[in-house]
């Protein structure tokens, strides 16, 4: 355990503690930092850009809790019920996950292009429109993500005791009933854990937004991590950016704590 603690302290904990300190200063990322107390946090509370980004993170979280989860559960459940080609489907679904985000972004930017792609056919400017940009970026991100959930859920579902299904089938339960009353409860811990990770990752989400829209158009896809990046490196306000990071960490901390409480009540092992 010691090597892990040492390496983690060196790479994550130490620098993070420094960032905690910087969040109470007016540091510009370059020179010396002056202690300004809670000033950054007070400013954050009244910052419309921050609220806008936070709101997008919340929408993003909801999207990723619903769409990929549903696709993952459906894909996995359907795969447990077919006899042939299961391996083929499983591998195919997983492939987008191994593609780097920069490549995924390049693929979809071209596919959705308003000049030559789907955007031209549908007369929609997916990444230019205020209303479509955020769902579009989430959609592209999801394309690379849901297949991973299929594989994980499938693994979990294969551990369900087959006798339960047989008994249910004897009782005349159809596939949907079986899914609700047997599959879902049986994989609940996996399901909850992936929900937890989805929330944590949704608040960290950066790559796809950065590569596809840089938070634009006009802040329509701005999320906390792109705001942080901009404050730190374009506005030269590293102290303020650290405060944004602290709030992000705090939100995730609360989510983890809530998960651990539920876990304890329900008596799951992590």
């Amino acid at each position: 355990m010691l090597p892990l603690i040492a390496i983690n302290a060196l790479v994550v904990l130490g620098p993070s503690l420094l960032a905690v300190y910087y969040s109470f200063t007016d540091w510009n990322g370059i020179g010396t930092a002056k202690w300004i107390g809670l000033h950054n946090y007070i400013e954050l509370a009244g910052d419309a850009e921050f609220r806008n980004a936070l709101w997008h993170n919340i929408l993003w979280t909801i999207f990723f809790l619903v769409v990929p989860m549903a696709m993952g559960l459906f894909g996995a459940y359907a795969l447990t019920r077919i006899r042939r080609f299961r391996l083929l489907f499983r591998v195919a679904y997983f492939l987008p996950y191994i593609v780097a985000s920069v490549i995924t972004a390049a693929i979809w930017e071209n596919l959705l292009s308003p000049d030559v792609g789907i955007g031209e056919v549908l007369h929609l400017n997916f990444l230019g429109s205020q209303t479509l940009a955020l769902p579009t970026v989430a959609f592209v991100n999801n394309w690379a993500w849901w297949g991973f959930l299929v594989v994980v859920f499938l693994a979990a579902m294969q551990g369900v005791n087959p006798n339960l299904y047989e008994a249910a089938a004897l009782d005349g339960a159809g596939p949907f009933r079986q899914f609700w009353s047997i599959t879902l409860p049986s994989i609940q811990p996996t399901f909850m854990f992936l929900g937890l990770m989805t929330i944590i990752w949704s608040f960290l989400s950066f790559d796809y937004v950065y590569v596809l829209t840089q938070g634009g158009p006009a802040g329509a896809t701005d999320v906390l991590s792109t705001l942080l990046y901009r404050e730190a490196f374009a506005s030269l306000r590293a102290g303020y950016a650290s405060a944004v990071g602290m709030v992000m960490a705090l939100i995730s901390g609360v989510v983890v704590a809530a998960y651990l409480v539920i876990r304890k009540r329900k008596d799951w092992a992590v």
């Binding site: 308003p114 400017n125 990444l127 230019g128 429109s129 940009a133 634009g216 158009p217 006009a218």
Partner: peptide, 9 residues
């Protein structure tokens, strides 16, 4: 840029 939307893309 043609329109505000296309300006962004």
């Amino acid at each position: 840029g043609g329109s505000v939307d296309s300006y962004f893309t």
